[in-house]
Design a protein around this nucleic acid. Sequence first.
DNA 1: TTTCGAATCGCATGTTCATGCGATGTCAAA
DNA 2: TTTGACATCGCATGAACATGCGATTCGAAA
Lengths: 206, 206
Amino acid sequence: MIDVAIIEDDKDIREHLVLLIDDQPDFCCNKSYHNVESAIDHLLDDPPDVLLLDITLADGISGIEGVSLFVEKEALFEIIMFSVHQDDEKVFDSLCAGACGYLTKNTPLPKILSAIKEAHNGGAPMSMNIARMVVQSFRSKANSELSPREREVLLELCNGKSYKRVAEALFISQDTVRTHIRNIYRKLEVNSKAEAVAKAFKDKLV
Amino acid sequence: MIDVAIIEDDKDIREHLVLLIDDQPDFCCNKSYHNVESAIDHLLDDPPDVLLLDITLADGISGIEGVSLFVEKEALFEIIMFSVHQDDEKVFDSLCAGACGYLTKNTPLPKILSAIKEAHNGGAPMSMNIARMVVQSFRSKANSELSPREREVLLELCNGKSYKRVAEALFISQDTVRTHIRNIYRKLEVNSKAEAVAKAFKDKLV
DNA sequence: TTTCGAATCGCATGTTCATGCGATGTCAAA
DNA sequence: TTTGACATCGCATGAACATGCGATTCGAAA
């Protein structure tokens, strides 16, 4: 028996979902709220197993801020975001904040139910295209304008090494390190170590 | 009708899978190989829709290197990794290389089939705990030992700004920037901009 | 066979940075 | 009401870095 809570500002959707979910044999759903403010104390006191959380709440705390709040307070339940949006930003912000899943609102009931089960069993249910976005975000750009040796040098920089220590690590002179870094800067269009390191992380060269 | 190819070094598993998948109404599976080397030319010439790729191949090119190869050659099919392993490294390396999904070998046939469908329809099928690992990897550590102002300064550093430009951006003197950075270094236990930036990215403070 | 990128090394100069030691004012918590 | 964290500012010095202009060698591609 999975105890499901819902925060959703649209009354129709909310009540509809509550009825449908509560009607299922293995689910119960008797905690529903129209915003985070009215839910938070209650949900912390009497935690459900899984929370379905709308992102776009009418006013006050947004769904994403809500996730952060629950995580800060060390809430015990899993949070699945429920949203019409599928912009990168909302998705990644939700997951960074601590949601374990993300469903778009067009998800049919059976999928919602299996997502809730999955979240409760330690999974990370996501709508198909959301999952693809998430996986895509890992793909490294493998910036191949850098030579192999330059990539090695950049990697050392990303580990915080000074010219001297890079030289030691790669068994070359500091002057050679200097030359490689010069070329790296030209190719990456930067002109400081910090910028090079930042670019390396942003472009997933590491 | 989804055309499935398999690279798997264990003869029993391979032949078993081929038979099971090919037997399904909406699937065909007549491309199976025991390693990447013997598959690559054929799969590039006559691409399937989806490739199930074992990670731990007996010898030669590993499954992960295989993904990189196919991606380099701009192969047209989706790749689902198929592995007994669920170490972070193998999973993330696979996705970084360009796989769109990751199944553990204990996955029952119906799940394998729906994963293949999902991959073919633009999804990113993953075993439950793999998906959770992937989602967890987004969670920001929100290192709160830094003060708000220090976080702002660090953010500017991550954008590659010099002390002077940070000072301009935050409307404070260079000396104040220096002080903040001093404190950031102490708290993050680093002693250079590059290290601080690297740590900021690694710890997802940005 | 010549050209070109990659990798190696050297030197010199000016800039930026790291770090030591100060200081003041505010605001909240103890 | 005193402590302590935060934010602000200042100065001085040595170390690290950025960048300019060289150079040689090697191997692959043209």
